[in-house]
Amino acid sequence: MMRLRRPILATLALLFALCSHSQALTLNIRDAANGDPVPHAVVSLPASGPASPLASPAVMAQENRTFEPHLLVIPAGSMVEFPNHDNTQHHVYSFSPAKTFNIELYAKRPEAPVTFDTAGVVELGCNIHDNMQAFIYVTDAAQTVTTGPDGVARIEPPTAAPVTVKVWHERLRDNSQPVTLTIPASGEEPRVISLDLTPKKVEADPFADLQRRFDNL
Rank of each mutant, 00 (worst) to 15 (best):
V80T: 05
N102M: 12
V92T: 15
N28R: 10
V43H: 02
A17F: 07
N84T: 08
E104V: 12
D36H: 03
V59S: 04
S44N: 04
N64I: 12
P57Q: 06
S94K: 01
S56Q: 14
P57K: 07
P97G: 03
F16S: 14
R109H: 13
D36F: 03
P37H: 02
P46L: 04
L72G: 08
I29F: 10
N84Q: 04
L72H: 04
D31Q: 03
N28L: 15
D86G: 01
E68Q: 10
Y93I: 01
L18P: 01
R30A: 10
S22F: 01
P50C: 10
A55N: 10
S48I: 05
L54W: 00
A24F: 01
L45V: 06
A41P: 11
P69W: 00
M60V: 11
V73D: 11
T26E: 11
S56Y: 03
P110Q: 01
G77C: 02
A47G: 09
H91T: 06
A61P: 07
S48Y: 03
S78P: 03
H91N: 11
A47L: 09
A24W: 00
L54P: 06
T26Q: 12
R109A: 02
E104Y: 14
A51N: 08
F67P: 13
A61L: 12
L18S: 08
H91V: 05
A51L: 12
S52D: 07
I103D: 13
A17Y: 01
H21K: 00
P97C: 02
N102D: 15
M79K: 15
A55D: 14
H21N: 04
V80R: 00
H91M: 09
A32I: 14
C19S: 11
A107C: 08
L105Y: 13
Q62V: 15
V38P: 00
L45A: 08
F95Q: 08
P46S: 01
E63Y: 12
H21S: 08
P50W: 13
F67I: 11
D86E: 06
L45K: 04
V42D: 08
H90K: 00
H70N: 14
S22V: 03
S48G: 10
P46G: 06
A112T: 14
F82P: 03
P46A: 01
C19I: 06
L25E: 13
L45N: 05
A61F: 09
P57A: 08
E111I: 09
N102Q: 14
M60F: 03
H90Y: 09
Q89R: 10
P69N: 04
A33N: 10
R109D: 06
A17R: 00
R65P: 10
H21I: 05
S48W: 04
N64T: 12
V43P: 14
S22T: 02
L18W: 09
Q62Y: 05
I103H: 04
F67L: 07
A107V: 00
A24L: 02
G77M: 02
S94R: 01
L14M: 14
P46E: 01
A32N: 11
E63T: 05
F67Q: 03
A24T: 04
A51K: 03
